[in-house]
Design a protein around this nucleic acid. Sequence first.
DNA 1: CTCCGTGAGTTGGAAAATCAAACCCACGTC
DNA 2: GACGTGGGTTTGATTTTCCAACTCACGGAG
Lengths: 156, 156
Amino acid sequence: MAAPKDPRPCSIADTLAVVGEKYSLLVLREVCLGNGRFDQLVRNIGAPRDILATRLRRLVDAGVLTKRAYSEHPRRFDYRPTAAGLELEPVLMALKEWGDRHLRDNTDLPMTMEHSCGHDLVPVVTCRACGAPVHHDDLTAHPQTPGWTVKGPVST
Amino acid sequence: MAAPKDPRPCSIADTLAVVGEKYSLLVLREVCLGNGRFDQLVRNIGAPRDILATRLRRLVDAGVLTKRAYSEHPRRFDYRPTAAGLELEPVLMALKEWGDRHLRDNTDLPMTMEHSCGHDLVPVVTCRACGAPVHHDDLTAHPQTPGWTVKGPVST
DNA sequence: CTCCGTGAGTTGGAAAATCAAACCCACGTC
DNA sequence: GACGTGGGTTTGATTTTCCAACTCACGGAG
């Protein structure tokens, strides 16, 4: 039997093991904005240089970023998102949306996103099957691993 | 002028300051699943008890969770999401979706979510204005703070 | 009443991660 | 030939994390 102290197997936890360390998602933010050089990242994120170097190695190893030489003589590099890295943008959008709504005065946002439809982006998570916005009460969790139950939906 | 080493003002960073520490989002996962008791959290997350206690205090202070006595004599508590906490579920869904797609064999997921429409949930981030799924290339960032530029869209 | 188990934490000390500042090195420039 | 720049690495002090053990209040069994 599995050691009783193993945590629940979970893709959320696994994803956080890749991008959940301090600064990692901020690196992804900057890289997605096109600011992929080491000194830009240091300035825009405010991370210590050594930690940033460690995070960049980890994100490249995990296939979220690629390191590319943008100049030989002198050899200089920048970091760019891979396709997998770009697929993490929904995480960033969800974090931004929550912060905009709960941590900020809506009239004074530090950044806005414009969608190609011409409007400011308000990201909404919808169900691919029916297209409706997803609400907590509409969800039922089905654990697939024996022994890991859920207590059922929480109502506020 | 602002000290030159201040990081970019950003709602993503601000949100991560609330829920970005190790285990915080896993706490939210369990609490949203209805497993809000201390020992359940310890077991299901695999976090040290002292760290968990610290995280719970922080999340309650930040208004993401509430602590509720589910029994007097003996006094026992559980943690439940606030309305603001439930609004972080899109973050969890986005993390789960990425992990399911990139870290797992699709035929063997540890948990599935069923939507009330009857289908398994595949969460998609859409633009509230036009309803279309949001793709990286459709976005333009508009920083609102002087001095914080972006280099423009990144193409892969 | 005494002993045992449970839930919800707190405490103590060792191990690991973070931090800030300084350093390095190859190269272009004045 | 001193100076600046980009992209890091090194060093040593400070913080966090980790884990096991401990506490405290209670409820129940014998």
